[in-house]
């Protein structure tokens, strides 16, 4: 769709974690249009079960039932599967404390809701670049 994002990309896999179906749909639309492959999870526990070695980036909400975003980041970093995967946390601006917690748990970057389509793409692209270094 958008050559800037879609070009020469070997369908990288992004795991999106959110309990809101509409958020997941929206993220899926944005990412698949840019050529990414998307795996969805509805909370932290679900995400852990779907995290595999071929996931390039995790995009997660913070407020979720079962296991929240900060706990998910901690669990990924302490786990055995793909522990260094770049993680983008989605916050709202009333959650500056959560953002800190997310960072301390090992999140790679954050993005504040509401965001624009291109902001999500840039963030995902940049943090996936970072690990290739």
């Amino acid at each position: 769709m958008n050559p800037e994002w879609g070009e020469d990309r070997l369908a990288e896999k992004v795991l999106i974690v959110d309990d809101s179906v509409s958020m997941r749909q929206m993220e899926r639309m944005i990412l698949t249009q840019a050529g990414y492959e998307v795996v969805e999870a509805s909370d932290g526990k679900d995400a852990l079960s779907k995290l595999s070695a071929d996931i390039s980036v995790v995009v997660t909400d913070l407020n979720m039932p079962n296991m929240n975003g900060v706990e998910l980041v901690e669990a990924i970093r302490a786990g055995d599967v793909n522990r260094s995967v770049p993680i983008l946390i989605l916050t709202t601006e009333s959650e500056s404390e959560k953002k800190r917690q997310g960072k301390e748990a090992g999140a790679t970057a954050w993005l504040t809701k509401p965001f624009e389509q291109h902001q999500l793409l840039k963030a995902v692209r940049k943090i996936s670049e970072k690990v290739r270094f």
Binding site: P86, T108, L111, K126
Partner: peptide
């Protein structure tokens, strides 16, 4: 009322942290 633009002006950290400097 939460507004993206006013937030980046007052709260310092803008929309995107390390990963996406353009924003």
């Amino acid at each position: 009322r939460p507004q993206a633009s006013s937030v980046s002006a007052t709260a310092g950290p803008a929309s995107v942290a390390i990963g996406s400097a353009d924003a």
